[in-house]
């Protein structure tokens, strides 16, 4: 098996006394689509946030595309990463947030072009071209000059996806992308994610409660509980035939909430 594009090696993360990730071993292969499910507080979002360099780790090593993320090699020793190193690594990841987090004072188009121009050094024309293509792809080409405040939640999230893609990351992270949306707007966003999964070579890591959707697009599903992966496998296995009791419990509660 080729080298994994993401690898967590015995990673522990604490918030004060609270252990959120405990000795986590986790791998994602290139172009793999992995969904993480589990109860709240299990650490699922934290995995994404650690990858996006939003949260540091206390123990263990995280590798992205073969390089250490939160550490670097200096004079033959492994030391915590400098801000420079983090900035270099950060470009490989893109993140879609539950609350979209669009920049309200910028137009939709500018939300997409600002980082490519300021961070990647693209010219305004190149960035604009890229932005227009992405807006086309997520079905919002006609909203380019509107402001986030004028868009629905579903539209904002699609812009959020386009904004992350504009940086051409290798790994796309989706942190509960539809949890903050009105039910009727969820479908549009899921369609965009599905298209991304099917038609593009992207490694995708999703945290979501949309079980049907996870089943449809995932290559692998990981069930997280209390800081570790309790069970993982292809979606048919996990959803139809979970082996662990805790997994069964969780799935039952989520898929049949009224029983």
């Amino acid at each position: 098996m080729s080298n994994p594009i993401v690898k967590f090696d015995n990673v522990t993360k604490r918030f004060g006394d609270f252990v959120v990730l405990e000795g986590l071993d986790f791998e994602v292969q290139q172009n793999e689509i992995v969904t993480i499910i589990g109860p709240s507080g299990s650490g699922k979002s934290t995995v994404l946030r650690v990858l996006m360099t939003l949260e540091p780790i206390q123990e263990g090593i995280v590798y992205v595309d073969g390089d250490m993320l939160w550490h670097e090699e200096r004079n033959g020793k492994t030391v915590p990463a400098s801000e420079n190193h983090l900035r270099q690594m950060r470009n490989r990841m893109g993140m879609v947030f539950q609350q979209f987090n669009l920049f309200p004072h910028m137009s939709v188009r500018r939300n997409l072009t600002e980082a490519p121009v300021q961070v990647l050094g693209l010219s305004q024309q190149e960035a604009r071209k890229r932005a227009d293509e992405l807006l086309e792809m997520v079905g919002l080409a006609d909203q380019a000059d509107k402001f986030p405040g004028q868009l629905s939640g579903g539209q904002q999230q699609r812009v959020g996806i386009a904004r992350a893609l504009a940086m051409r990351p290798k790994v796309m992270l989706f942190d509960e992308p539809t949890s903050a949306l009105d039910p009727e707007l969820v479908g549009d966003v899921l369609n965009v994610i599905r298209e991304l999964a099917n038609e593009h070579d992207l490694t995708m890591l999703l945290v979501t409660h949309e079980m049907q959707f996870a089943r449809q697009i995932s290559d692998r599903v990981c069930f997280f509980d209390r800081g570790r992966i309790r069970e993982e496998g292809p979606p048919e296995e996990i959803f139809s035939n979970p082996k662990q009791d805790r997994t069964k419990e969780f799935l039952h509660a989520v898929l049949h909430p009224d029983e």
Partner: peptide
């Protein structure tokens, strides 16, 4: 956070 994710 969004700004950080975009590497500003």
């Amino acid at each position: 956070e969004a700004a950080k994710a975009l590497n500003f």
